[in-house]
């Protein structure tokens, strides 16, 4: 047997698909897995809905300026949804995949490494679009939220959401390197997201929070995503009730873009494909 030295199997001339194409098919696979994991599906998509229902039932009346509490919170919950699907989801899922050797298996194939990240991004974009659509539909149907009536507002909605979800995704991937094992990941991630929600104007009106808390929240992306979304869904007069008495859209873009850059650099520097070397 050992004398049989066959020539390497002749390779077909067919080229391997590129990183983008493989990334998209990874995305499709990830979505399939997501859709078939019922607890995951329900938790990710219905949890924000549940929170809005609770708030809607618990708080009546006005957040000021003709805006109901629920309208105010829905914008925050959409922002939270982006944080959940981008940051929480990946910061928990990637360490689990790393611990189980999923990443190792992929690195052992000729798959371009970028295809893995493209797949994750596709999944996050689709899931967060669905989650946002569900929240909006509910808020419009039950809580009198008005959809944006100008092209400018739709445009703002689009870029704030995209930039926000991109920042959250990159930070989620970067944060995933902190957990040493998959089991540690949820307990390292959930409190961070929860605290951010409390101080960034999701569960409370931002301007009602103590100044030092606002200062801390202003450092992180969630506050700016929520503020950008309020500029889309709340009446123009409400801008006066923000800290700077304006929506500060320029600043929203700047802070979120800065987090995207920081997140990308962290990803490139820290991402690990295996638990240990």
């Amino acid at each position: 047997m050992s004398t049989v030295v066959d020539q390497p199997v002749a390779r077909a001339a067919r080229r391997r698909p590129g990183a983008l194409s493989l990334g998209l098919s990874r995305g499709a696979l990830e979505l399939k897995q997501f859709a078939r994991t019922r607890p995951y599906l329900i938790f990710t998509l219905l949890f924000p809905v549940l929170i809005v229902l609770i708030f809607g039932a618990a708080f009546h009346g006005d957040a000021g300026g003709g805006v109901s509490w629920t309208q105010y919170f829905v914008t925050g919950m959409i922002a939270s949804g982006l944080l959940a699907t981008g940051f929480q989801n990946l910061a928990i899922q990637i360490p689990i995949e790393r611990s189980r050797g999923v990443l190792k298996r992929l690195v052992g194939t000729p798959m371009p490494r970028s295809a893995y990240f493209i797949g994750k991004i596709v999944m996050v974009l689709v899931v967060s679009a669905i989650s946002t659509a569900i929240l909006l539909a509910m808020a419009v149907a039950f809580y009198g939220l008005a959809l944006p009536d100008t092209a400018t507002k739709w445009f703002t909605f689009a870029w704030v959401s995209l930039l926000g979800v991109t920042a959250c995704t990159l930070l989620g991937i970067a944060y995933s390197s902190l957990a040493r094992t998959g089991r540690a990941a949820p307990s390292m991630t959930t409190p961070v997201a929860l605290v951010l929600q409390f101080i960034s104007g999701v569960f409370f009106v931002y301007t009602g929070l103590p100044g030092w808390m606002q200062q801390i929240a202003a450092f992180f992306p969630l506050k700016w995503i929520a503020q950008g979304l309020r500029s889309v869904f709340l009446p123009e007069e409400f801008a006066a009730r923000e800290v700077a008495h304006s929506w500060e859209l320029g600043r929203v873009a700047l802070v979120l873009a800065a987090w995207c850059v920081a997140g990308l650099i962290l990803c490139l520097l820290t991402f690990r494909w295996t638990d240990k070397d």
Binding site: K32, Q33, R36, G101
Partner: peptide, 12 residues
């Protein structure tokens, strides 16, 4: 490469 089992594909 056939590594030790990962069992990652549950739903697929």
């Amino acid at each position: 490469i056939v590594l030790q089992s990962t069992g990652e594909f549950e739903e697929l």
